[in-house]
Design a binder for these strands. Structure first.
Length: 500
RNA sequence: UCCUCAGUAGCUCAACGGCAGAGCGACCGGCUGUUAACCGGUAGGUUGCAGGUUCGAAUCCUGCCUGGGGAGCCA
């Protein structure tokens, strides 16, 4: 305790600056702060247990569980800095407010000072013997999170409290780490992080239904002579919406920085009600110049493997929790993926595989229509049992900007399918030839005036380039085994649901 | 949007045409090392909403609402 407090004293002293005129009140203040117990986090205690052995520590956190007996009791304390909770032992003999502490309910916030002792015989490796427990914030008896299993559906209704459960503590710690890993991966490889606009007038891509952005009066918007809403009088002087993709902007920056990535929120107003769709989600969109579809797949494969590796290494407690309680066999499966090559097949080969299959499909398999979920699952789960790139789809079922192959019925598209989640990445080599691109824009009935700048990229030093979009939440689902996208977003926004 | 299943105590569920119940949680008490502690007791209900059938409806029928699973759309 003395060693610890001496340390704090010096630290505080330096932070305060050296007082020019010594005043008693300041001196007392500084000394009393220095005399306080060393404030630590659960994370520190779990990671450097030996360093704190037999030392006095002060913890602040929330009660996960409180069991009292006649003259002693146990608190499971969690402060959110680590997945683990710490056992606090308190005894009537040493605690003046024993009865108050014994009566504290789950969810209450306390400040605990006590000695860390190793408990090699017990289920937990160490515990803190409390000398003092002070109430920071009481929790009412109707606190909905109990020390027992709750359904995910119920926890979604208390999304403001669910991060205090084991599952969501692990999920959102993993989410944070995964976001960091994405930046690490690209930054290490010389990519420039691009903030693509959130508000855009570009609705030509057809990636999804749009959320309109306007500040016109919804009751009486200005009208044109035709009786339509006159968006020329709107804030931006034209129709605008929330972004459905930063890809087109990313292409412009790739043709300046060579390698860029976006990582930000994306909005789609699709009326889709599934476990893997949300109206607001995050997307990562790398774009690389002087690169073709194979470079694109190499990048995607490296990235997925990097992300898996990162979480397995840095989120050990969380990953083993997922493995035990969410998805048995998760760790083994992920380990296998790191060590295996992703399969790569063309759409045409995929169709052949499906046609040869003995499995009966609800939807017919024929060249020219898109692969159904059941087809994708068959390929990635039954044929390969690992991630599969499917490339070179028919032109008609893919987006206008994808590069037309020499055949010329197909385009250089690539989707990455993974077991359990389905499509996790969609990407392509982009059409860099101005005249071919203009033809595609015409074929898709898009007004080329809207894309004048996009076309100019082909006019001024346009080169072959490629990129893809990774759904951040889908990646997180894949890596944690959590099967509903609503459980990997802090406050999910889906059709008819925007609580919190 | 379509298909499908479900909605009963704070939570998880039982009762399936005849007295609305259990476990956990809450509250009160007991217990000298608990760890989703244990033991005893108490309270807690407009059975999602509206209508219908019936002597009688949580239970059967119709509509609506909400949620789960699947499909489409996609990341």
């Amino acid at each position: 305790m003395l060693i610890g407090s001496t340390c704090i004293f010096k630290q505080d002293f330096l932070n305060e600056g050296f007082p020019g005129n010594w005043r008693l009140d300041i001196l007392i203040n500084v000394i009393s702060r220095g005399m306080r117990m060393e404030k630590v986090t659960v994370r520190q205690l779990v990671r450097e247990t030996e360093a704190y052995e037999d030392r006095q520590v002060t913890l602040e956190g929330w009660i996960r569980n409180n069991r009292d007996q006649k003259s002693f009791g146990f608190i499971a304390l969690n402060d959110g800095t680590a997945f683990e909770s710490i056992q606090i032992v308190y005894e009537k003999e040493f605690l003046s407010n024993y009865d108050q502490v014994a009566g504290l309910g789950v969810g209450s916030a306390v400040n605990v000072t006590g000695k860390l002792v190793l408990t090699p015989e017990a289920r937990q490796p160490f515990e803190v013997k409390a000398g003092e427990i002070n109430l920071e914030g009481v929790s009412s008896p109707d606190y909905p999170i109990q020390p027992k299993r709750h359904s995910r559906e119920f926890l979604r209704e208390v999304a403001h409290l669910r991060p205090r459960t084991n599952l969501f503590s692990a999920v959102f710690r993993a989410r944070s780490m995964l976001a960091f890993a994405i930046h690490q991966f690209f930054q290490d490889r010389g990519f420039i992080y691009l903030h693509a606009p959130i508000i855009t007038a570009n609705d030509a891509e057809g990636a999804g239904e749009l959320f309109r952005v306007t500040n016109l009066d919804p009751k009486s918007p200005p009208l044109t002579d035709d009786g339509l809403v006159d968006y020329s009088q709107d804030f931006f002087g034209k129709r605008t919406n929330l972004t459905v993709s930063g890809q087109l902007e990313a292409e412009a920056y790739a043709l300046a920085f060579k390698k860029v990535y976006t990582f930000g929120p994306t909005f789609r107003a699709e009326n889709s009600n599934t476990a893997r769709h949300a109206a607001e989600f995050w997307m990562i969109e790398p774009e690389i110049a002087f690169a073709d579809i194979n470079d694109n797949m190499d990048l995607a494969e490296d990235m997925i493997k990097y992300l898996i590796n990162y979480l397995l290494e840095k989120a050990e407690a969380e990953m083993s929790f997922f493995n035990q309680f969410v998805d048995k066999g998760l760790q083994e499966r992920l380990q296998n993926i790191i060590n295996s090559e992703f399969a790569r097949i063309t759409y045409t080969q995929a169709i052949e595989l499906l046609q040869k299959s003995k499995d009966k499909f609800e939807y017919p398999v024929d060249w020219s229509s898109d692969l159904q979920t059941e087809h994708e699952r068959y390929l990635t789960e039954k044929v390969f049992n690992k991630p599969v790139f499917v490339t070179d789809y028919p032109k008609a079922i893919k987006a206008f900007y994808m590069r037309v192959n020499d055949d010329p019925k197909t385009v250089a598209a690539m989707d990455l399918l993974v077991p359990g989640v389905g499509e996790i990445i969609g990407g392509s080599q982009r059409e860099e030839r101005a005249e071919v691109l203009e033809q595609s824009i015409a074929d898709f009935n898009i007004d080329k005036d809207d894309l004048w700048w996009y076309l100019e990229l082909r006019k001024y030093g346009g080169v072959k380039h490629a990129g893809f979009g990774l759904g951040f939440e889908r990646a997180l689902m894949y890596l944690t085994g959590v099967s509903n996208i609503r459980d990997v977003i802090p406050f999910p926004r889906t059709v008819n649901s925007c609580e919190f």
